[in-house]
């Protein structure tokens, strides 16, 4: 009983982590069609922003939930103005440019913070469930992921801003004809995407030892999740994160964490073979 509860929590935690690390990419790649290979580095910078802020005496939750997203969002803004905006609609070129950016960010982080592992400790202590100890921080991550999904849904579906953004991504000429500036909207959307990546990096920072190259560990999983999700932004994100989270955790518990990762990749291959356009091309069609 205790064990099944613990496994359930671990599964939810795995799904939540996938949602978190993919959310920023879902906006930047899923919505804006910019292949952001620097996504992992945006997360890494979110982690460093958090650690630096905490080192300066800021409350850790303020640092993670407010400072890191703003800092990384602003960095994203600069990147968008300088590089990305010249490349909208040129899928392959964005890939090359953002790969270069990722190298720049790794280099800069190495220069500023050095190539040693840093980190902060987890702000929430563990607790017991029957015979088992659970990392209390897992619940925090699950809650943040749920809030994040609801917030994204609310903004994109419920607000006029969300509607304009979605409209612009679909038909920017039409949006322009209606008097909106696609340039501005793209800029704002990229800011949000970067901020989400920064948030993810910040939230995961207390769980890991951070090095400038840490971003590389997330990028593959984030892309797999977003691509397998398919055309619908949020339904795709949640459905593919759930499938992969469940598959990888089942195999992790049954065999080993390595097999769990292997199972995730095999599941991705099978899924994309069966549904080349992603999960939401067949299920939840027309959903957001």
């Amino acid at each position: 009983m205790d064990l099944s509860f613990v496994i359930l929590v671990e599964m939810l935690y795995a799904i939540a982590t996938l949602v978190l690390i993919s959310a920023g990419l879902a906006v930047v790649f899923g919505m804006m069609k910019v292949i952001n290979l620097a996504h992992g580095e945006f997360m890494m910078m979110g982690g460093y922003a958090t650690i630096t802020a905490v080192g300066l005496g800021v409350n850790v939750f303020v640092a993670m939930l407010i400072i890191a997203p703003i800092v990384v969002g602003l960095i994203g803004l600069v990147v968008e103005r300088l590089v990305i905006r010249h490349l909208y609609g040129r899928l392959v070129d964005t890939m090359l440019a953002t790969w270069g950016l990722s190298l720049v960010f790794i280099g800069l982080a190495t220069m500023i913070f050095g190539n040693t592992t840093t980190g902060i400790s987890t702000p929430i202590s563990g607790f017991a469930v029957g015979r088992y100890q659970i990392n209390g921080y897992n619940f925090f991550i699950i809650v943040v992921a749920i809030v994040l999904v609801i917030a994204m849904l609310a903004v994109l579906k419920g607000t006029r801003l969300g509607l304009i953004a979605r409209g612009t991504m679909q038909r920017s000429e039409m949006a322009a004809a209606l008097g909106y500036s696609p340039d501005r909207i793209y800029m704002a959307t990229f800011f949000c995407g970067s901020a989400l990546s920064g948030l993810a990096g910040a939230i995961l920072a207390p769980l890991v030892g951070l090095v400038p190259t840490s971003g590389g560990a997330y990028i593959a999983k984030a892309f797999i999740t977003v691509i397998a999700g398919g055309p619908s932004l949020i339904a795709g994100l949640v459905s593919s994160a759930t499938s992969f989270g469940v598959v990888s955790q089942v195999f992790t518990f049954a065999i080993s964490p390595v097999i769990g990762d292997v199972a995730l990749l095999i599941a991705a291959v099978v899924l994309l073979r069966a549904m080349p356009q992603g999960i939401t091309s067949r299920f939840f069609r027309g959903k957001l």
Binding site: E10, Q133, L207, A217, F253, S256, P257, V258
Partner: peptide, 20 residues
Amino acid sequence: TDFFPLDVSDFGSTITKIQQ
């Protein structure tokens, strides 16, 4: 005995397994 590739950074499930 569990082995981990060098890039594994999530040990949540492992910690549960250890308790088992």
